[in-house]
Simulated scan of single mutants.
Amino acid sequence: MSAGLPRVLDQSAGFSLIEMMVVLAVLAISLLVAAPAFTDLIRDNRLVSSTYGVRATLNLARSEALARRAAVVVCGTANGTACSKSTDWSSGYLALIGVDEDATVDAGNPGQSRLHWEQQNNPSVTVTFSRNFVAYDSMGSALGSAGTFVFCDDRGASEARGLILSNAGSLSASVDSDDNGIVEDGAGNDVSC
């Protein structure tokens, strides 16, 4: 030690126990507040992902119907090889080209092929459609197939999403035009889960 400099006591440069407890309490409170919001964000993203998957498959089917000048059918499927003939599309959906409008697979038709298969990877999301299939004709219209896809999770209709298919074959997102917190189908009725 050099002469003339005062001697400073060596104090520990760490946190005290009280300071650490305060930081942990603030962190715990922050997590308790943020966790539900983060869970809702994950659920919302699953609904959006399912909506985009159906939209992409329907857009592909319509463009292929126009390009190939052939009927394309999109339907719910459980196994990726045949239509399930159900309005519940939660397991997945299938686009078939060269099938008739009742979505019956004709094994003897060599022009028939599976255009696309999307397996639903969000088991917490249910996907229903007001019909058991969508049939696009060679002009890309979906006459007789108009309806609403409804995407739900365990939060119910207040958080549901909808996708409206018109007879012309175009898609639009469902909106809540009456501000009651529930989106509406193509006829203006609230969707249900």
Rank of each mutant, 00 (worst) to 15 (best):
D185R: 14
D185I: 10
G156H: 11
G162E: 00
S177L: 15
G181N: 12
S166M: 08
G181M: 11
R161Y: 08
G181V: 09
G181S: 13
D176P: 01
N167K: 10
G156C: 02
V183S: 02
A173L: 14
S192E: 04
C152E: 02
D190V: 11
D153I: 01
G162I: 13
D176V: 08
L165K: 04
S170G: 09
D178N: 08
S172Q: 11
S174Q: 07
D153C: 06
D153S: 02
D185G: 05
C152I: 04
A160K: 06
D190E: 15
R155W: 04
D153Q: 10
L165H: 01
V175K: 12
F151N: 00
L171M: 11
G162M: 10
G169K: 14
S174L: 09
D185C: 06
D185S: 05
A157C: 01
I182E: 03
L163E: 02
S192W: 12
G156M: 12
V175Q: 10
A168Q: 09
G181E: 03
S158G: 14
I164V: 09
V175C: 06
V150H: 01
F151V: 00
S192A: 14
V191R: 09
G186P: 04
L171G: 01
D190T: 12
S170A: 05
S177F: 15
S172V: 11
C193I: 14
S170E: 04
G186N: 05
G186D: 01
G156T: 06
S158F: 06
N167S: 13
G188Q: 08
V175G: 05
L171S: 00
A168V: 00
D185M: 14
L165T: 03
N189I: 00
L163S: 02
D185H: 14
D190M: 13
N189K: 09
N180C: 06
L163Y: 03
A187D: 08
V183N: 03
L171I: 10
E184P: 03
V183L: 12
S166Q: 05
E184H: 07
V183P: 06
A168R: 14
A173K: 10
L171H: 03
D179F: 15
L165M: 07
L171Q: 04
S158K: 15
D176A: 04
G162V: 05
S166P: 00
N180K: 11
L165V: 04
N189Q: 11
S177K: 14
D154H: 10
G188R: 10
L163K: 07
S166A: 13
L171C: 03
S170Q: 12
A187T: 10
I164M: 04
V175R: 12
S177R: 15
S166R: 15
